[in-house]
Simulated assay, not measured.
Amino acid sequence: LSNHGIEATMMDGMMSASTEFFWRPLEDKQRYTNLIGGEQFQFEGYGNDRVRSPDQILDWSDRLYLKVGPEDERHITLWPTHPQNFRDVLHVFTKKCGRVKDDLLQAMAKLLDLDNDEYFVDQLGEKAETNVRCSYYPQCPRPELVCGLKPHCDGTVLTILMVDDSVGGLQVLRDGVWWDVPIVPRTLLVIIGDQTEVHLS
C-alpha cells in the first residue's frame, strides 16, 4: 500500500524508536516483561511468545506486544519510556494506521457493492481492539535451525505491517508456494486476517 497518508518522517520515527528500544540492555527491556512474577505469561509486554512445552520450537525473535486501542484500556506501564519519545511516537503512528485501516475497510465494502461503505467499520464498533507488535530478529549463530517467525495465519480483521526497508525475508504462502515479499520503501503491507476471510466467504 503506497500513498497511505503516513509521512515518511513518521514511519522513520516509529522504526527508529522501536529499534532503539530493542538495542537497550536486557535489564532495561525486562522492566516491561510479559511474564508476571517471572512465570505467568501475558500477551502484552516484552519477551518471546508463550512457551507451552519444553519440546516447543521457539521463534528466534524478541517482541514487544502492546494494546493501543481502546485508549482507555492501555496498560501504559508496559509502554517503554526509553527512548523518551517512544510513547508519543507509538500513539501518533497507531492513530494514523487506524485511519488507514478505516479507509481500507470502507474501500473493501464499496468494492463488494455492500449497501453501506461503513459496513466493516460498523462491525468493529466503537471499542475495537487494536494491538501493535514490534519485532526484532537478532543475529543467530545457527540460522539453519530456526525461523525468525514460524508460518502462521493472522487471526485479525486486518494487519497493517511496516517492514524494515533494509531487511528482507518475509514470505507469504499462496497455492502451496512460498513467495518472497519485495521490499518497497515507505509502503505498508496489508494482510487480510482470518476474521475478514471468514466473514467474506
Rank of each mutant, 00 (worst) to 15 (best):
C134W: 04
K95T: 10
G155E: 06
K95A: 13
C147G: 13
R142C: 06
R186D: 02
G155Y: 04
V181C: 00
V177T: 07
N85T: 15
T130F: 13
C134R: 03
M108T: 12
D115I: 05
C140M: 04
L78S: 05
M108N: 05
V157R: 00
L161Q: 03
G148S: 11
Y136S: 01
D103M: 05
F120Y: 12
M108A: 11
L149E: 00
G168E: 02
L188E: 02
K95M: 12
T81R: 10
Q171E: 14
M162D: 15
S166V: 08
C153K: 03
S166Y: 07
L149K: 01
E129I: 15
L112Q: 14
P141E: 05
A128W: 15
D88M: 08
L90Q: 04
V146W: 01
Q171F: 06
F93A: 01
P185E: 00
V190D: 06
R142I: 07
W79S: 10
H82N: 08
I191Q: 14
Y119L: 12
P83W: 00
R87G: 05
D117W: 14
L173T: 06
L114C: 10
Q106E: 10
V177P: 02
P83S: 02
Q123T: 15
Q106S: 10
D115V: 07
G176D: 06
A107Q: 14
C134P: 01
V181E: 00
Y137E: 07
Y137A: 08
I183A: 01
C134D: 04
V177D: 04
K101N: 04
